[in-house]
Simulated assay, not measured.
Amino acid sequence: MTFQRRIMILLCVAVLLAAVGVLAVVRAASRAEEKNQTRAGGPQVSRGEVSLSPGGGQRIVFRNMAWGPHRDELATVPADAPEGPRTASGVSCLRFHSAAGTGICLQADQGGVQESYRAVVLDARLKEVSARPLAGIPTRARVSPGGHLVAWTVFVGGDSYAGTNFSTRTSLLDLRTGAFQPSLEDFTIRKDGTTYRNADVNFWGVTFATDERTFYATLATGGQTYLVRGDLAERTVTTLRENLECPSLSPDGTRLVFKKRVPGLSPDAPWRLYALDLASMRETPLAEGRSVDDQVVWTDEKTVVYSLPGDFGADLYAVPADGSGTPARLVTSALAPAFLG
């Protein structure tokens, strides 16, 4: 054996040993991270299959906020065991919603040098159906009850609804036809019985009706916010009421739960949750006394779920939608839930 051949063999052995060492360190770090998460009281999370298909029992799919190798991934738990072990999907989302086997995932785009985001439509197996670049930071996402429409809102300036220095852009996509509405600002606005135009118009917080045509959303203009009802076929929105933000329509289509600015509260935490009966337009305050900066999700006809700050970023809470009861923490270390079943 020549000297050069011996050197080559030694170099190959050294590279192989180094690779084995790196792999061992990575595995050890991952195990240590998971153990630290468990010791800290965090939920157990393991990789597995996550489905958005209807049926298969009631379950919750959400963005996992627990520290560890599966943070920010979509994860699932049974609805009757919300604090049980989680199954993580490997698909990361900043905002998420799902209905009827369709998912919308607003995520960071890892392909570019600069920070950017995209909206990804997912099928029931969490496979990418289509994707579009986003103009700003993801904040809201919704799928229609029939799974045919998706909507999302991004911040294109500022970072909080609490202040006044922000702008939003809300887009809608019809999966049946591929028709894409880049901005609700292109719709005709009917305010106080007349057509309204203003350069400061912003929309956010879409929620869909079961007819897959009607939607509700927030319109901001002139320093005020309004509840609007939209018609996709006519490309119109009509103002219904002042001081409503991030509405969420009940499964039976009769009520909205929304956040409302309450005079006298801190400008940094100004909101309280209210329910609105669409037939009588009567408001009912919900039992949650903390400021909720979220668009709630209905679990059924009686209960809504929303996020509040928690030890790992956010926790999910539930409260009756009729003003009774008391709020209760439902899932720790979680955000952007969808209730499937």
Rank of each mutant, 00 (worst) to 15 (best):
A135H: 11
A135Q: 15
A135L: 15
G136T: 12
P138F: 09
P138A: 12
T139W: 13
R140P: 02
A141H: 02
A141S: 13
A141T: 08
R142F: 12
S144C: 11
P145D: 07
G146A: 10
G146D: 11
G146E: 09
L149N: 01
L149V: 04
V150S: 02
V150I: 14
A151T: 05
W152G: 01
V154N: 02
V154H: 02
F155I: 10
F155P: 01
G157V: 12
G157L: 14
G157R: 15
G158W: 07
G158C: 07
D159S: 11
S160V: 08
S160M: 07
S160N: 10
S160D: 06
T164P: 02
T164C: 03
N165C: 09
N165L: 12
S167E: 12
T168I: 09
T168V: 11
T168H: 10
T170H: 04
T170G: 04
S171L: 02
L172H: 04
L172G: 01
L175F: 05
R176I: 01
T177A: 06
G178D: 07
A179V: 11
Q181L: 06
Q181F: 11
Q181E: 07
Q181T: 12
P182W: 08
P182T: 05
S183N: 08
S183G: 06
D186R: 07
D186V: 08
T188N: 00
I189Q: 01
R190P: 01
K191W: 03
K191V: 00
K191L: 06
K191H: 09
D192F: 00
G193T: 00
T194N: 00
T195S: 00
T195I: 03
Y196C: 00
R197Y: 00
R197V: 05
R197T: 04
R197H: 01
N198M: 00
N198K: 02
A199C: 01
D200W: 06
V201K: 02
V201E: 13
N202Y: 09
N202D: 14
N202M: 12
N202G: 08
F203K: 04
W204Y: 13
V206Y: 05
V206R: 02
V206M: 04
T207C: 07
F208E: 02
F208P: 01
F208C: 04
T210V: 05
T210F: 03
E212Y: 12
R213I: 11
T214C: 13
Y216K: 09
Y216I: 15
A217Y: 05
A217N: 13
A217D: 08
A217V: 14
T218C: 10
L219M: 15
L219N: 03
L219A: 05
A220Y: 15
G222D: 14
G223A: 13
Q224G: 11
T225K: 14
T225R: 15
T225G: 14
T225Q: 14
